[in-house]
Design a binder for these strands. Sequence first.
DNA 1: CATGAATGAGGTTTCATTCAT
DNA 2: GATGAATGAAACCTCATTCAT
Lengths: 201, 201, 201, 201
Amino acid sequence: MSPRNVEKDLQQREQRINRILDSALEIIAVKGIGSVSINHIAAAAGMSIGNMYHYFKSKDEIISEILRRGQTSYGEHVSGLAKQQGNALDKLLLLCESWLAMENNWAYTILIHTARLSDASSDEIRRAVTERFTNNLGPVATVMEQGQQEGLVVSGTPVELAYYFVSLIQGLTLQKLPGAEVPIRAQARSIVSLFAARPGL
Amino acid sequence: MSPRNVEKDLQQREQRINRILDSALEIIAVKGIGSVSINHIAAAAGMSIGNMYHYFKSKDEIISEILRRGQTSYGEHVSGLAKQQGNALDKLLLLCESWLAMENNWAYTILIHTARLSDASSDEIRRAVTERFTNNLGPVATVMEQGQQEGLVVSGTPVELAYYFVSLIQGLTLQKLPGAEVPIRAQARSIVSLFAARPGL
Amino acid sequence: MSPRNVEKDLQQREQRINRILDSALEIIAVKGIGSVSINHIAAAAGMSIGNMYHYFKSKDEIISEILRRGQTSYGEHVSGLAKQQGNALDKLLLLCESWLAMENNWAYTILIHTARLSDASSDEIRRAVTERFTNNLGPVATVMEQGQQEGLVVSGTPVELAYYFVSLIQGLTLQKLPGAEVPIRAQARSIVSLFAARPGL
Amino acid sequence: MSPRNVEKDLQQREQRINRILDSALEIIAVKGIGSVSINHIAAAAGMSIGNMYHYFKSKDEIISEILRRGQTSYGEHVSGLAKQQGNALDKLLLLCESWLAMENNWAYTILIHTARLSDASSDEIRRAVTERFTNNLGPVATVMEQGQQEGLVVSGTPVELAYYFVSLIQGLTLQKLPGAEVPIRAQARSIVSLFAARPGL
DNA sequence: CATGAATGAGGTTTCATTCAT
DNA sequence: GATGAATGAAACCTCATTCAT
């Protein structure tokens, strides 16, 4: 019926949405969180302000979607890692390295905390973000448990250890935000070794 | 006119400044960082908007001063702790407990990161905040070093360990921000034990 | 291509137009006049925004057409009533009852006044609406005149009486608009009796 | 304490508020209700847009205040009328004449109905407007009752008669809105006589 | 004929800062 | 010192209309 190419339209829509989200994240990363205005996002995405609202109901929804994608993709990453071959410490090392190496992770992290803190964010967003964060602890906890059985990881409640591990990495991530970087380099190996059971213990 | 008045004026000035800073921090803690407007601060401090500018050149200066005081007082706290009697692990435990117990620490922490991230913040502010953060690592590093000499703390560059320790605590602090708290309780003892050399090692 | 198709096309066009007008009126009635956007009408009518402009040149034309149909149909109703058998008071009673009973009459009435008031409305629309309103007084005036000859209706210029009668009904209609209804019930019989010559006078 | 002249400030504030309200009503009267934007009101009042918000929390509050003042002043007018010397019909005549003579009454009337209809208006505004409207019927009902005791007014529930009387006047008022006036002149004397008991009845 | 993406102006509101009093 | 009115830029969002497909 429709003279429009529906499939192509959907593809284009997908592309636009990605462009918006990428632009928004880019702005946060480059100019800081205070600059994430619809105005700036629209300019960066090369579209009109009004048109943004064809793709997102509100600015909040954009932020919310960035968070969802970021956390989901991170969750899959961690989940995949947990299922791979290898001992627990190697997995933790990999996780730590990949996280610290990734550019713009501080942007995600700041975004997460800002979203959870902001007045503007609806309770729903806050709950969703926190819930995903908590869920993402799962695979890390699994790795911790595996490590304990292997005798490679310190004793303690696995999920609590995971909580510390992730918080530590996030804390370090925040120290790396641009403009004023703390002049100390984090070493993945050293971090993981904090969670390692000492041989002969 | 009399010298008494000058002194009294100075006292009053001091009081006003404190009132402003306290009100601002209170607002951040209660209503969130998005709500910190000169308007709200003035109302909370019980003064007129215009009068605020007799005490601070700009809103930025208020934020900046809150940070300076917070970080300085924290620095003194840590510094005092390092000089006290006792073994390193006890000191770390004390530090960890006092930090996790303190209400509104997340407000300071968020404030620090926001200030460092914000466009609005001048480079100077960012540098100052980061510099104080780095300086405050000093006493913790000293404690780490002491612990290593006592055989109680894991090996590694002391300042790096201090960096991890503080980042971990800050990371945990951010998870506790109100509205959506992660349903896992952090245990100071468990955290400190990550940095403990195992007996018999 | 075949003549059948042309006819069918015309039918469909008619249907679409009706669907649009009905949806628009429905929205006004349910959600209020502030919500009548092309967007909403299109959604309610189950068509695309762009397609609306194949049937109407502008939003104004939609509103204008709703008014035209509403006023025309009301005019026919009144005109038919005037020509029926029966005495004048019975006719007025019937008119009054049917108007007060009809749901959504307030929507038409508000629409009429809004259209006449709005900047947006062209002078032409305003004139057309007012002219139809004035014309619709004719049959009512005829009934008044008939009533005076029957000795049943108070004396006075018939068209002026008609003007009062219709204004009274419209005034009452507006009091019934949803959200805050005046807690007094209008009685058609009482209203008509205001225009009745008292027996024995 | 304050070097400002408090009394003068209050006076000036009062003046500004009046200026805003007058300008808003003027705009409604001259340009139509669609043009009542903060923009236009500010321009008409000769102040900046932002400054409007020192005097009113929102546009809604401005509208709401106009309504409150208009209805209150009308209520006092009617109430005063009811208490004056003279027979009921004279009072009704006076009321009718003064209302029909007053310029911009249609603006109030339209405003009342728009406020009650608008989505934007909070339920509270709607309730307040309707309640004041209902209350304002009281004095008119008193006059009706007085008239019935004098044998000058038709029989019927006084408040119902008042309801018809006011609705009729409001209905007529709406017909007079500018741009397209119905070419029939309302005569106060004729209107009142609809409510008059005929002598000898 | 049908679609809905795109535009840009305009709406309401907030806010840091200045300034006359 | 003290006040709060005043400003103007910028934020978010809506909407009638156009146009390529």
